[in-house]
Simulated scan of single mutants.
Amino acid sequence: MKWKAVLKNLDVIAIIAASIGAIVLHHLGIIPETYVISILLMLLALHTLQEALRGEEIKEDIKTITKNVQVSDPEVELIKPRELLVYTEEFALKNRGEVWWFNACCTMFRSQELFDRLLKTSIDSSRTTKIYFVMNKTMKEAWERDIRPKIEKCRGRDKVQEPVWREIDEDIAFQMIDVGVDREAKEALLAFWGEPFMMELGSEGQHVPRYLIHVKSQSELISRLQDIFVRCRLKNS
């Protein structure tokens, strides 16, 4: 390790040796004092120039490393309880086409605030073209009671298609949107029925998401969720 340090600083060692040599020669009367000063100034200038060049090389190395180091965008992101409403609202505004809802709990829309922030934002958005629901048959009564009357009051109510009612075995629920402009690209907010992702409120079994998973367009989960939605929507009743 010591030898590596010596080799790395050979230029400094050479300057020190030359300076000592010039001083010794001056004391021996071989060269005058003005020569010593000139030699020392020249060596100092050379060292300064070399350090400046080395600094530029270091900067270029740092730039190269920075360009080569890429922080990859995660395919999924966990959305925490305190962020849910704002995040879901912003997610709906990103939509550029169809919105797909799968196996959601209709009773959570009993609250006007939750309806406005989770669903009405999509309905009223000029960028939303259609909204499709594939829902569990057990939610039909809650749909008629808690959701349909609110949808009828929205200016974009014609975008909402009649729900497709199915017996759904999957323990997941998700909302999927279009985010692509020139090409198809979808993202989803995914939840799981039961703790810790969904909590049950009250005696009537109202289920509200506690955590959501934001599935990005580059995730292979998107194609799997698409398959589940299409398969359930098209299968025989």
Rank of each mutant, 00 (worst) to 15 (best):
N136Y: 09
Y132F: 06
Y132E: 09
N136A: 11
D124Q: 04
T121W: 00
M139W: 08
R127M: 07
D124N: 09
L119Y: 09
D124C: 06
L118Y: 03
F115T: 14
M139H: 14
Y132K: 10
D116T: 05
K137I: 11
K120E: 11
E113M: 13
R127K: 05
E113K: 13
I131S: 05
T138H: 08
E113L: 08
F133N: 06
N136V: 07
T129W: 03
Y132T: 15
N136E: 14
T138Q: 15
K140V: 01
K140R: 03
M135L: 15
L119N: 02
M135E: 15
K120L: 13
A142C: 01
F133A: 05
S125R: 04
E113S: 11
L119P: 01
K120I: 13
L114P: 09
M135Y: 07
R117W: 10
S122R: 11
V134C: 08
F115A: 05
M139Q: 10
I123F: 02
F115E: 14
S122E: 09
M135K: 08
K130C: 09
L114M: 11
F133K: 03
T121Y: 00
L119D: 03
I131M: 10
K137M: 12
S125M: 11
E113Q: 15
T128D: 10
K120T: 06
A142W: 05
S126W: 00
I131W: 00
R117S: 10
M135A: 10
V134Q: 07
L114W: 15
I131H: 01
Y132N: 09
R127I: 07
T138V: 13
S125P: 10
L119Q: 02
K137L: 10
T129Y: 02
N136W: 03
I123M: 05
F115W: 01
S126N: 05
S125F: 01
K120F: 02
S125L: 05
M135I: 09
R127C: 05
D124H: 02
E113G: 06
Y132V: 04
S126F: 00
D116R: 09
L114K: 13
S125H: 03
A142M: 01
K120D: 14
R127G: 13
T121H: 00
L118A: 03
L118T: 06
K130Q: 12
T138W: 06
S126Y: 00
M135C: 08
F133R: 02
R127T: 11
S126P: 14
D116F: 01
E113T: 13
I123V: 12
L119T: 00
F115Q: 05
L114N: 14
L114T: 14
E113W: 15
R127W: 07
T138E: 15
I123H: 01
E113Y: 15
M135T: 06
K130R: 09
A142L: 00
S126E: 15
D116Y: 02
Y132G: 03
R117G: 09
